[in-house]
Computed example of a mutant assay.
Amino acid sequence: MEKPSEARVTLWVILASATLTVMAGAILGPIVPAIQSSLGVSESLAGLIITTHGALIVLVSPVAGALIDRSGPRRPFVGGLLLYAAGGGSGLFVDSFGPLLVSRAVLGVGVAFVYTGITVLIYDLYEGQQMNRALGLRSSANSVGGVAWPLVGGALGTLSWQAPFGVYLIALPLGLLAIVTVPETGRERASDGAETDAGVAGVVAVLRRRPALLSVYVLYFGANAFLYSIVIFYPQLLAGLGITSSLSISFYLAANGVAGGISAAVYDRLVERTSRHALVATALTLWIGAFAGATVAESALTAVPSVVTFGLGLGLVFPSAFAWIEALAPTDRQGQFSSYLASSGYTGQFLSPVLFGPLVPLFGVRGVFGAAAVAAILAALTLGVALRKR
Rank of each mutant, 00 (worst) to 15 (best):
A321K: 11
L214C: 01
A16Q: 00
S61L: 13
L301M: 10
I50D: 06
L174H: 10
G240T: 08
G357P: 07
S71F: 14
P319G: 13
W12Y: 14
L159G: 00
S37N: 10
L81I: 09
T185A: 04
G29N: 14
I232W: 05
G157D: 08
G357K: 08
F97Y: 15
V203A: 12
D197L: 03
V114I: 15
G65L: 13
W161S: 01
G110R: 11
V374C: 02
P183K: 02
P4L: 10
S245Q: 05
I325G: 06
A255D: 07
V317T: 14
P361W: 04
G136W: 09
T295E: 00
G91I: 02
G335V: 07
A205K: 14
Y84I: 03
G348F: 07
W12C: 00
Y340E: 02
V271M: 00
S245G: 15
G72D: 03
V218E: 03
G25C: 07
R208D: 03
I325D: 06
P33A: 11
I262N: 05
R74S: 01
P319V: 04
S37V: 03
H53N: 13
V308D: 06
A178C: 05
A198E: 12
G110E: 09
T302R: 04
V365H: 12
F369S: 13
N224E: 10
F337C: 06
G240C: 09
G166M: 08
A255S: 15
L284P: 03
G222W: 09
A375M: 14
L125S: 05
F291M: 11
I230F: 13
P305E: 06
V60T: 14
R187Y: 05
A18F: 08
L15P: 04
R8D: 01
L351T: 00
L59M: 14
V216N: 04
F350Y: 02
L214I: 06
A375V: 15
P173E: 12
S339K: 06
A255R: 10
F350E: 00
T10M: 14
